[in-house]
Amino acid sequence: MPVAPLVLAYDPAEIKVLSVKVDENAEKAHIEASLAGIWKRLHPRESFVYSWYEAQLYEDYAEDGDQRFTGVIVFIVFLIAGMGLLGMVTYTTEQRISEVGIRKVLGASAAQIIVLLSAGFVKMILIASVIALPLGYFLGGLFLNLFTYHVSLGPGVFLRCLTSLLLTGLSAIGIQTYRTAMRNPADTLRSE
């Protein structure tokens, strides 16, 4: 919401919070002690509760909590996506294990087998990125426009997302295809 004008009315019967403006150079400990003494004299049975405005603003609007929560959510999303991709790669490589064994017997190197097995998955990741990045830019812009004061989406955000996606995908694909490429072809072809 945009910042609207504010009207403060003075009604001593309704005062629950008192704001006191102090000089920048004043000692905070001396002010706290003075206010506590005055409060104790006027309200001896009630405790003196206070906070400094800067500290209160920091506690109310600090970004650490939101960033940590968002970081945990993003980590969980990447973990689930990586596990799903690892499952698909594992299933596909197990289906093609005899093909890998035959190619190794015919002289294919481990690097060629890794490229053969992972090329389709890398293409899928790149196609998904081409679809998701513009869609994310559009939907992220719509979401941010709900707020009066917001940051703008720049290419850095999407570059970090794409890099994270590629690192997660390539590590999940690379680990499984490397394990499959390094298997002994005699063990895989024996059952054929």
Rank of each mutant, 00 (worst) to 15 (best):
A4H: 12
T188F: 00
Y58F: 10
T92F: 10
T163G: 13
L159N: 11
A172M: 03
I15R: 13
T163Q: 09
I73F: 03
R179W: 03
V20Y: 01
R190N: 00
L166W: 09
E94A: 05
P2C: 04
Y50M: 13
T148F: 15
S98A: 14
A119V: 08
E59C: 06
I38Y: 07
D66H: 08
A36W: 03
F158P: 01
L165V: 14
I31Y: 04
S171L: 12
V49I: 13
V157W: 08
V130P: 01
I114G: 01
S51T: 15
E32T: 04
F48D: 04
P5N: 14
Q56I: 10
L35M: 13
L135P: 06
H43F: 15
N25A: 12
E46K: 08
V77W: 08
D11C: 06
S19P: 00
V7P: 04
S19F: 10
G37I: 06
I127T: 01
S118I: 04
P134I: 02
R103I: 00
A33T: 14
D66L: 14
S98Y: 12
P5I: 04
A4F: 09
E59H: 11
Y91N: 08
L85K: 07
T168H: 01
G87S: 07
L170E: 09
L162N: 07
L159I: 15
N184V: 00
R183E: 05
L86Y: 15
M83V: 09
G107A: 06
T93Q: 07
Y61I: 07
A13K: 12
K123D: 11
R190I: 00
W52M: 09
D11V: 11
Y91H: 13
D66P: 03
E54M: 06
V89T: 14
L139R: 09
D187L: 11
V77R: 04
Y58A: 15
F75C: 07
S51I: 05
S129D: 09
R103Q: 02
L167K: 04
V130A: 15
D60C: 05
N145P: 08
A55D: 15
V22L: 09
L126H: 06
W39F: 14
L79K: 06
G174Q: 01
A128Y: 04
F138R: 05
P44T: 05
G169S: 05
V3S: 14
Y149M: 06
L144F: 08
W39P: 07
A55H: 12
A36S: 10
G65T: 12
I173L: 03
S51K: 10
V3M: 07
M83R: 08
L42W: 02
A128S: 14
T188H: 01
A62N: 15
Q56A: 15
L57D: 10
C161I: 09
M124P: 01
I173K: 02
T168M: 12
T70R: 11
P185M: 00
E14F: 11
R103V: 01
Y58N: 11
R68V: 12
L144P: 00
L167T: 08
M1W: 11
P44E: 11
R183H: 05
I73Y: 00
K16L: 09
L162T: 14
L79A: 13
K40S: 15
Y137F: 10
A4V: 15
Y61R: 08
